[in-house]
């Protein structure tokens, strides 16, 4: 698949939120502050983890049959490294960089970053393709969560039954949006892009 096809596939057909459910808890609980810093932190960390996992899989885990150590590598080495990077960035004088660091610190131990990295590194991609897939998946998540955030704001002003207020309506909206995204599947992308 071409790079453009991988981008389209990662944003639409295999959207991190709407196809795999990553970050759904975060969205349903309303963690939508600092959108741009959060997106930048997510992209950078997903890219970083995807590259490390791809390299580790290619040269260490798969040749020696040690795939089970992937998650141990992530939690024992990569998460502390991400936390360390976030804490160093949090000391910077720039307010924007501090917001990115704050988002990064929160994202370090989350299924979102790990899930995107696993999806990107496990597919039959080369290193560059895995990196592009990770960045595109982050973009797809940000786009979906921003759309759902806008829907949530409109619904808060609407007359919704008490039981449906908050997370239930958001989940139903996500379901309808996921149905729309299902129409842009891998086959359609392949027809257009090859």
């Amino acid at each position: 698949m071409s790079y453009f096809g991988i981008i389209l596939s990662s944003v639409f057909a295999a959207n991190a939120l709407l196809s795999s459910g990553f970050g759904a808890s975060r969205l349903a609980r309303g963690n939508t502050k600092h959108l741009l810093p959060s997106f930048i932190a997510l992209s950078l960390f997903s890219l970083f983890v995807a590259v490390i996992l791809w390299t580790a899989r290619r040269f260490l885990f798969i040749p020696f049959g040690l795939s089970a150590l992937e998650v141990v590598l992530y939690m024992s080495l990569i998460v502390p490294l991400m936390k360390f990077i976030s804490r160093v960035a949090a000391q910077s004088p720039g307010a924007f960089l501090r917001k990115v660091a704050e988002s990064g610190d929160e994202l370090a131990i989350s299924s979102l970053v790990f899930g995107i990295a696993l999806l990107s590194s496990k597919a039959s991609y080369t290193l560059y393709e895995a990196a592009i897939a990770a960045l595109a998946s982050s973009l797809g998540y940000a786009a979906a969560s921003e759309l759902l955030g806008a829907i949530r704001e409109r619904l808060e002003l609407s007359d919704v039954p008490t039981s449906f207020k908050g997370a239930p309506t958001l989940l139903l909206s996500a379901g309808l949006m996921a149905m729309a995204f299902m129409g842009i599947d891998a086959v359609l992308i392949k027809n257009f892009v090859g």
């Binding site: 020696f64 049959g65 040690l66 795939s67 089970a68 150590l69 141990v72």
Partner: peptide
């Protein structure tokens, strides 16, 4: 875990 993974792989 690594040993278990090796056995499982074999």
């Amino acid at each position: 875990i690594a040993l278990g993974s090796l056995f499982a792989d074999r």
